[in-house]
Design a protein around this nucleic acid. Structure first.
Lengths: 169, 169
DNA sequence: TTGCCAATGTTAACGGTGTCAACACAAATT
DNA sequence: AATTTGTGTTGACACCGTTAACATTGGCAA
């Protein structure tokens, strides 16, 4: 994504964006933030539609589906340009909300006794790690070697995760 | 990483690298390939040092440790510049060897009956997803919120994974 | 030894990119 | 009516990837 390119796409001069964004990074951060908001609403819908115990699985599916449907946004959201959180407090806040959602799903499962006790933050980080890795793997086309579809992989993955966390009890 | 920058760092003119690499992508791919080889030997040492049943855990630790100690290489290895595998067959081969290592660890565990049966390729993809996500999370400084150290997170993570895969039986 | 040639490096240039300063101008505010 | 604010434009600078044309060096063949 090039700054001059978006200026051209907007039918405007190359330096016009600097009236709206201090920096190239600022533009990228804005795109990332909107992406995080989209992901957040997708996960929210998933968790609302879920009938209780399937919460975490629905969240996982929504997460991976978002990455699959918005690859460019996803790459920007978790790419190296917004990785350094210097001077990007808003973005950091929005991004950690995603992790919070996963954590909510885990806490629900704990409340229902479907998974054992334990630090829900750590479990959420583990779960999120796996989902993120899965999306990256799929986005880079490296899941082609495995004989499973992406949906099957998500199923396998969440199943393993839930059994693993259940075994904690 | 800029092509002219490495030329300067090598004390040579800006266009000299083009005598050794066709492209900027070619240089990046070479760096990535060396990184994959380093990662491969680190995992190999881990698996040789492991006394049987701890194989997968040792591999996971070696993997995360490599990412933590060589963040620049890791980002290049799994970054968007080498993601597209057009015209990079060597790199693809070297990179899939890493996945193969994880798979070997899983097959060992299956042979010992420590985890249940199932497609080892899928299990390896799942495990690798989690490790990759964990490294990324840590490299971007997003593990600071969680109250656990990276080593503890790896332990938690592999434990959950192994219990989850064991539950398949 | 002499001559060729492959490997490597240099110079100079092209288009593209992020960024900034100076200027212009319409809308809103005072 | 005067001024400020927001937005856009022009023009420039330094950097980047890339290429073409030109050197230089070493080893190998005759």
């Amino acid at each position: 994504m090039t700054l001059r390119g978006v200026a051209r796409a907007a039918g405007v001069t190359q330096s016009a964006p600097y009236r709206h964004f201090a920096d190239r990074r600022a533009l990228v951060a804005a795109v990332a933030e909107e992406g995080f908001r989209m992901l957040q609403t997708a996960m929210l819908e998933a968790v609302q539609k879920a009938d209780g115990r399937l919460g975490l699985k629905q969240i996982a599916i929504a997460y991976v589906q978002f990455g699959h449907e918005h690859p460019a946004e996803y790459r920007i959201m978790f790419g190296p340009e917004v990785a350094r959180h210097d001077e990007l407090p808003d973005l950091r806040e929005t991004s950690s909300a995603v992790l919070g959602f996963v954590q909510v799903g885990i806490e629900r499962l704990q409340a229902e006794g479907l998974i054992g006790p334990g630090d829900p933050a750590a479990m959420a980080a583990t779960t999120w790690s796996m989902l993120h890795g899965l999306v990256m793997l799929s986005l880079d086309g490296q899941t082609a070697d495995v004989g499973l579809s992406l949906g099957q992989l998500v199923n396998e993955t969440t199943r393993i995760m839930m059994f693993g966390m259940a075994a904690r009890a």
